[in-house]
Write a protein that binds this DNA or RNA. Structure first.
Length: 420
DNA sequence: TCTGGGGTCCTATGCCTT
DNA sequence: TCTGAAGGCATAGGACCC
C-alpha cells in the first residue's frame, strides 16, 4: 500500500527568526518579501490579527504598529541554511531514496514499509527530533496519495493539538474533503476554482466524485490526475532532484531608476548571480531572456515593459560573455523618459556541461571556464563579491530595500549569535 | 513612497514534413 | 505538382506551486 507523509515547517521564515531570537516567541511576527514589499510569513499571533498572506506591507502598517508586530526583511541565506538542517535531520531518520524535498519548507516522504508500525509514534519521533535538532516546529500529514497528504497536513496544522494527522481511512477522507473549499486544494487556485464552481463543483468531495472525462475535456491532465489522487489512487510519485532547466535572477529596485547606466549595473549583477548558480549545477545555458519594466501599480506614471529573447551560438556559462550580450539587449529595450521598477534575466535551455556540443564554425576556448572556476573559488573562500565584474558598478543606488534584516546567524562568522 | 522572486508543467498554435 | 491528413517540433503563454 502507498503511504505518503508531508512534512511541512510551521510558519517557516518566522520560525527561523525565532530560533535565534527567543524574544519573538509568542509575539506577533511577520517576514517580508524582497524589497520589503509583501508579507510572506506570519506567526499564528499575526494571523489572528487578520494579516493576510501575500498582502502589501504598507497596507497593513497601521495594524502592525498598533499591535507591536515584529517585522523582518527576508534573509534567504539564513532560511536556506535552516532548511538544509531540517532536511538533513529528516535524512537521519528516513532512507534518502524515500525523501523528496519539495520546497524550502516541505518534504514528502514514503512510508510504505512502515505500514505495520504505528505511524503516529514514528511521526511523533520525527517531529520531536526535528524540533530538538533545529528548533523548527513541523506538522505531518499522512495519506495514500500526495494530494491527500497535503490535505492531511492542512488538518494537522489547523485542527490538531499534536500537529499530526492520519488520513488513510477512506470514509474519513470523504468527510474531510467535503469541508475543503475547492480553492484550498493543492493545485487549484483562483482561476480554476472559478471555472469549477461554474460547473457546480465547490468542494473536494464534489471534485472527487466528478467525471474524469469532463474534467479532462474542460481542463487538463493535471486536474484529471488530481481527481484520481483524491479518490486515493496514487498518480504522483516522489520525484528525484534534477538540475534546473532555467535560472532566473531579478529584483525590484529600492527606488525607481531612470538612467541606463544603473540598469546596466543591476542587470550585470543579476547575470553574475545566475551564472554562479549555473556553474554550481555544472550546466551551460543556450540562451537568455532580458526583461525591463516600470511599476504597473503606479497608474500616474507612463508604462513600458518589454522582454527580448536571445539564443547563444554555443552553450556557455561565461559571466563576462553573457553580461556583454545582456547589456546589448538592454540597450534595445530601454526607452528614455520612463521610471523603471524592475529588470531581470532568465537563462534557459540549460544543458549539462558534459553534453555540450561542439561547433564547426566557432572555436570554443576552455580558458574562460578556468577563469570562471577560479573566480567562483575565490568568492567561495574569501566571501561573495570579493572579485566582481566592473560592469556591476560600485555605488548600487538601485539596490533593494531590506530595512529590517536579521543576522546571518548560521552562515557568517561575524554575525554568529552572541551569548553574554 | 511603499505590491517578491524563482520555478515547473501543459496546451494551443503554427510551421514543416511525410 | 497539388491536396489533405497526421505527426513532430518549437514557441509563447497560461496555469499552478512555495
Amino acid at each position: 500500500m502507498n503511504i505518503f507523509a508531508l512534512i511541512d515547517c510551521n510558519n517557516f521564515y518566522v520560525s527561523c527568526e525565532r530560533v535565534f531570537n527567543p524574544y519573538l516567541r509568542n509575539k506577533p511576527t511577520i517576514v517580508l518579501s524582497n524589497n520589503d514589499g509583501c508579507i510572506i510569513s506570519r506567526s499564528n499571533e499575526a494571523k489572528s490579527l487578520g494579516i493576510p498572506m501575500g498582502a502589501p506591507f504598507y497596507k497593513y502598517k497601521d495594524i502592525i504598529e498598533k499591535n507591536n508586530v515584529e517585522v523582518y526583511s527576508s534573509n534567504y541565506q539564513f532560511y536556506g541554511d535552516m532548511s538544509h538542517r531540517v532536511m538533513k535531520s529528516l535524512d537521519m531518520m528516513i532512507p534518502y531514496k524515500d525523501i523528496e524535498i519539495y520546497s524550502i519548507d516541505e518534504a514528502f516522504i514514503r512510508l510504505d514499509g512502515y505500514g505495520k508500525h504505528n505511524l503516529f509514534d514514528l511521526s511523533q519521533k520525527i517531529k520531536k527530533n526535528i524540533l530538538k535538532w533545529t528548533g523548527i516546529p513541523i506538522s505531518i500529514g499522512i495519506a495514500p496519495t500526495k494530494t491527500l497528504a497535503k490535505v492531511a497536513n492542512h488538518v494537522a496544522k489547523k485542527n490538531t493539538s499534536t500537529g499530526i494527522f492520519d488520513l488513510r481511512d477512506n470514509n474519513l477522507q470523504k468527510k474531510i474533503i467535503s469541508n475543503f473549499q475547492i480553492e484550498d486544494l493543492w493545485g487549484i487556485s483562483y482561476k480554476w476554482g472559478k471555472k469549477l464552481r461554474a460547473l457546480g463543483i465547490k468542494n473536494g468531495l464534489e471534485l472527487r466524485n466528478s467525471d474524469t472525462k469532463l474534467i479532462r475535456n474542460n481542463f487538463n491532465v493535471i486536474l484529471e490526475r488530481m481527481v484520481y489522487e483524491l479518490r486515493g489512487i496514487s498518480c504522483l510519485n516522489l520525484e528525484n532532484s534534477t538540475p534546473k532547466k532555467s535560472i532566473m535572477s531579478s529584483r525590484s529596485f529600492g527606488k525607481l531608476v531612470t538612467e541606463l547606466e544603473s540598469l546596466e549595473q543591476a542587470l550585470s549583477t543579476y547575470i553574475t548571480i545566475a551564472c554562479e548558480k549555473l556553474r554550481q549545477q555544472n550546466s551551460k545555458a543556450q540562451g537568455i531572456y532580458v526583461f525591463l519594466q516600470t511599476n504597473r501599480f503606479r497608474k500616474d506614471l507612463p508604462q513600458h515593459r518589454k522582454k527580448i529573447k536571445f539564443k547563444f551560438d554555443y552553450p556557455t556559462s561565461d559571466t563576462g560573455f553573457i553580461i556583454n550580450i545582456g547589456k546589448n539587449i538592454l540597450q534595445k529595450i530601454y526607452k528614455k523618459g520612463y521610471s523603471y521598477h524592475k529588470c531581470g534575466i532568465i537563462l534557459f535551455n540549460l544543458i549539462s556541461k558534459e553534453n555540450q556540443q561542439g561547433n564547426f564554425f566557432i572555436k570554443i576556448s576552455p580558458s574562460n571556464d578556468y577563469l570562471m572556476k577560479s573566480l567562483d573559488r575565490i568568492n567561495q573562500v574569501m566571501g561573495s563579491e570579493t572579485v566582481f565584474f566592473a560592469a556591476q558598478g560600485i555605488k548600487h543606488n538601485w539596490k533593494m530595500r531590506r530595512n529590517k534584516l536579521s543576522s546571518r546567524y548560521t552562515t557568517n562568522w561575524i554575525e554568529l549569535p552572541k551569548v553574554y
